[in-house]
Design a protein around this nucleic acid. Structure first.
Lengths: 126, 126
DNA sequence: CTTGAAACTGACATTGATGTCAGATTCTAC
DNA sequence: GTAGAATCTGACATCAATGTCAGTTTCAAG
């Protein structure tokens, strides 16, 4: 009830299409209350959550992975994860590190090209 | 001719399926010499190049983008890129930065979870 | 030469995320 | 209560990357 918005507003505020928001819900990445008539209602936090989801999707992480990852990012005390889940987390961490590394390498190359040509490299990157 | 290998060897050494290697070539990401009979031949460098391609794909960068990005990473003196290409590079750089940032945030969260549970966080990440 | 392994091309299938459309229902403002 | 905007569900379409299969040709080793 707090800051309840419907799907249209969440869409414009998050940049994700309504279609995608429904898809995220279907995939268990996003939850919503329902009005008596069945319309979805979201709280303020949803905006940030959707933003996070989109970032991860854009970084090549699939919904299956995100679904298992997100709880780790929000809940403080995660019950003891099964040991094979822990293995999976480590593996996933590794893949992420490789992605980060490669993206950084590429970004540096880009910086060189940009800087060589009148480049103003927006400092936002940090 | 230097270290000429065919598609099978490049496949096993790079981890990409032959199908994908042909696809990369079709997309202009990878080149090959051809034997008189039409079989592809690659030099040693191809292994690293394919590895880079796969990393970028895995990080959510599409072939269109990679095609325009790779030359920047290999050639030292790039002729003056058109100004709109430069704009594009900057935009692309921004998207990368966001991906990197989000991946780092997520990795940190993962680290906390892992460390809290007997975690040995492989140092390889660096 | 011959033969079996590997590669070729080309087509069709699949998976994941998203777009789009249609018909029905709900919400909001008058 | 009625009209128009927004939402619902469900189906089909699309795009990118990859898998898979079939039929043919080339390569390497005996």
């Amino acid at each position: 009830m707090v800051g309840s918005m419907r799907i249209g507003e969440l869409s414009t505020r998050s940049g994700a299409s309504p279609r995608s928001l429904r898809y995220y819900e279907e995939q268990g990445l996003l939850s919503s209350e329902r009005t008596t008539g069945g319309h979805r209602e979201y709280g303020e936090e949803a905006v940030e959550r959707v933003d996070r989801i989109r970032c991860l999707l854009g970084a090549g992480i699939g919904t299956d992975t995100i679904r298992r990852l997100l709880p780790c990012m929000y809940s403080r005390e995660e019950g003891g994860p099964a040991p094979d889940l822990l293995d999976w987390l480590c593996a996933e961490r590794e893949r992420m590190s490789r992605s980060i590394h490669e993206l950084e390498r590429t970004r540096e190359a880009l910086d060189r090209v940009i800087e060589r040509n009148g480049g103003r490299v927006a400092v936002a990157g940090a």
